[in-house]
């Protein structure tokens, strides 16, 4: 299969505190991660808050330069070679909170208009309005919304506008950063269905960042599970859910009360509190919360090993 986006050995640390004489402390948001997104497929990046998934998403979207490693978009190293305007348009982002991703002082028409003008700088006023109306139609919104301000729209409608804006520049890769977690349950399904149909129709590749396994199960072809800046399990969605191979993924699956029985192969629950990213545990980073941890886990080098075709895990002990 063709790879569209590839992250190689990505590292991103943020400075947590710096003192004049003491040593600088870092938040190890992304710690040497390799990741690949295939053509016309959805990779779900799953993890809890503080796992570094948003940081990784931003790095892959070309808006946050990693400290080390490279991001290749169709073979072009976007941080080394720089983003041309054309490639910039090919990678778009849908944010979690539509309240902050739409400029409150602009009408929907102007919000979509500025995206359309990127592709067609000389478009006439009337054509621009028709194009914007078409974009709204594509995300199942009424044309009347064009003349409204974001605050006149509901959360779900705003998120649809954000999706329309991303689609305006004909992207090939979309990073959707928890696009439904700020929305009500009844609206979530609508947005997921919309993303699903758009992805299929336009054959867009997508990185779907989420902590909600229900939507992940619905939308993704592949899953990467992240814990404290590292990917601990990766594979086709079906395989990861049915054949879970890392204890952290297993605890995620069992923590959802309504998770179907078939995905609860290991009834294990995590212990204690998540450690801080500033001083992550040695060895396997999950060992402090892992119910099946052994002595050797403290020294274990976390490396993804293939356990079945296209299914990788960083834990050899979950049987």
């Amino acid at each position: 299969m063709k790879t569209v986006v590839e992250g190689r050995d990505i590292k991103k640390y943020f400075i947590a505190s710096k003192s004049l004489f003491g040593k600088t402390e870092y938040v190890r948001a992304v710690d040497h991660v390799d990741i690949e997104i295939y053509d016309n497929s959805v990779l779900a990046l799953v993890g809890e808050s503080g796992s570094g998934k948003t940081t990784l998403g931003r790095i892959l979207a070309g808006i946050l330069k990693p400290d080390e490693g490279s991001v290749l978009f169709k073979g072009i190293d976007i941080y080394r070679d720089g983003l041309t305007r054309d490639i910039r348009h090919k990678i778009q982002v849908i944010f979690q909170n539509p309240d902050s991703s739409l400029n409150p002082r602009m009408r929907i028409l102007d919000i979509l208009g500025e995206a359309i003008k990127e592709i067609e700088p000389t478009i006439s006023k009337d054509d621009l309005e028709d194009r914007a109306a078409q974009l709204l139609e594509n995300v199942n919104l009424h044309v009347d919304h064009l003349y409204k301000y974001p605050h006149e729209l509901s959360g779900g409608e705003k998120q649809r506008v954000a999706i329309a804006r991303a689609l305006a520049v004909n992207p090939e890769f979309i990073v959707a950063d928890e696009p439904v977690s700020a929305l009500d349950i009844s609206i979530r399904a609508q947005i997921i269905n919309l993303l699903n149909s758009i992805q299929k129709r336009l054959r867009i590749s997508m990185l779907y960042i989420a902590h909600d396994l229900r939507t992940v199960w619905n939308i993704s072809d592949y899953v990467a599970v992240m814990y404290l800046g590292k990917i601990v399990e990766y594979g086709e969605t079906e395989k990861v859910f049915r054949n879970v191979a890392h204890p952290y993924t297993a605890t995620l699956l069992t923590s959802a009360p309504l998770m179907p029985k078939e995905f609860r192969k290991h009834e294990i629950y995590p212990v204690g509190e998540p450690p801080s990213l500033i001083d992550p545990p040695s060895g396997c980073r999950f060992h402090t919360r892992c119910p099946i941890a052994r002595e050797e886990c403290k020294k274990l080098d976390m490396k993804l090993e293939e356990i079945e075709d296209g299914h990788y895990t960083a834990c050899p002990f979950l049987k």
Binding site: I185, N218, L258, M259
Partner: peptide
């Protein structure tokens, strides 16, 4: 009924929705 349907695990298919907005 619609709320309970919306929290089911469904693979790669249209999720049942409640049309419209509150």
């Amino acid at each position: 009924e619609a709320l309970i349907n919306s929290i089911k695990y469904i693979r790669k298919d249209t999720l049942p929705t409640i049309e419209g907005e509150p």
